[in-house]
Simulated scan of single mutants.
Amino acid sequence: MKNYKKYILIVIFTSLVILLTFLYLSYRQVNFHALRDPPKDGEIIKKSLMHEGINRKYLVYKPSKINKNPPLVIYFHGSLGTGENMRNLSGFDFDYLANEYGFVVAYPDGYENHWNDCRRSASYSANLENIDDVGFVKALISQLQSDFNIDPQKVIASGFSNGGHMVYRLAMEAPESIFIAAPIAANMPVDENLDCVKSELPVHITIFNGTEDLINPYEGGLVEVLGNKSRGEVLSSQKTLNYWASLADVSLQEPTITNFPEIDGNPETKVSKISFSGQRDVSLYRLEGSGHVVPSKFMNFGEILGGNAKEISAAEEIFSFYKSLTLKSSMSE
């Protein structure tokens, strides 16, 4: 009898250990959280505008001090997301930079949590109903110019995943509306699945893609989200970069390679940047060992999306790109 009770206790203890281990591993898979609180000295404002009969909502981060005619960052969320979700997923990086440099950040909501990007076969409502998101973005810029006196010639469009694809749409169809395009975790669709009109005009663009991204394959191929394969195939990161480099009239044989120092303590992640400079500046950040994430030093992503190369923060790199371009422009005047 004693041996039987001992056996039962061992079984119960072992089961608890297995259960706790399972819960811990599951938690690590889906544990998404910012590693810092949002800044306290700015203001987050909920706003909306009507476009084509649809009430489009967006958040605005207004720093305590705004420069005269400041730049505007528009940050587009990914599939099933919201503007507020995108703000959190980035570790509030742009908000902190806005406090430092006095610019405005907008976090718009997509139609039914998606953007009408360039992927013809995508099954979400924004695509099926052909929502005019380019028109919405133009209206948003105009409204923010009226409300905060932003400079419409200094619009930085960035986005994650589906939001990154929305950035490609703006770069292709409305390059005059943005100063910089900065897609994250997104490659351009293959031509057979492209539902955008290419203006074939060059833009300043900087791309951030992870080599271990299981959703947006770095080397190109089928995009699959939770079993949904309707988004179709995309080009490789290199071919995506080459497309924009060709428009900028640069020699693909003369890239500038930048290797970033290892600072995150994880030897499995490395960051390098391939850059070209011509009529416009174009670059690709290769996030080796990183997955379907927004690169940030202040964000923890669940392991289900892959690693996070914390050697860089995308927001910091994007705004540094902006500063270098404005400096170059002022020196040429």
Rank of each mutant, 00 (worst) to 15 (best):
121 S>N: 13
73 V>H: 06
85 N>L: 13
60 V>Y: 03
125 S>Y: 09
79 S>R: 00
86 M>W: 06
123 S>L: 02
121 S>F: 14
44 I>E: 15
118 C>E: 07
94 F>R: 01
113 N>K: 08
114 H>Y: 15
118 C>L: 11
116 N>A: 03
125 S>T: 11
51 H>L: 05
95 D>E: 15
109 D>G: 12
102 G>S: 03
54 I>F: 13
120 R>N: 12
126 A>E: 05
62 K>V: 06
62 K>D: 09
55 N>F: 09
81 G>D: 03
117 D>A: 07
99 N>G: 07
102 G>D: 04
84 E>N: 08
128 L>Q: 15
51 H>E: 07
93 D>G: 13
109 D>W: 10
44 I>H: 04
96 Y>G: 03
101 Y>S: 07
82 T>S: 12
90 S>N: 12
112 E>P: 01
116 N>D: 08
52 E>T: 05
66 I>W: 10
54 I>L: 09
66 I>K: 09
63 P>Q: 09
83 G>W: 05
66 I>Y: 05
47 K>H: 06
82 T>E: 07
69 N>P: 10
36 R>M: 07
124 Y>E: 10
81 G>C: 01
83 G>H: 01
46 K>D: 14
42 G>L: 00
58 Y>I: 02
43 E>V: 08
44 I>V: 15
61 Y>A: 01
39 P>E: 15
85 N>F: 14
113 N>T: 13
80 L>V: 11
63 P>E: 03
74 I>P: 01
86 M>C: 12
77 H>A: 06
37 D>M: 06
90 S>W: 05
88 N>V: 14
79 S>C: 06
118 C>H: 11
103 F>R: 03
116 N>R: 02
43 E>N: 10
52 E>R: 15
62 K>H: 10
69 N>L: 13
56 R>V: 02
59 L>D: 09
103 F>N: 03
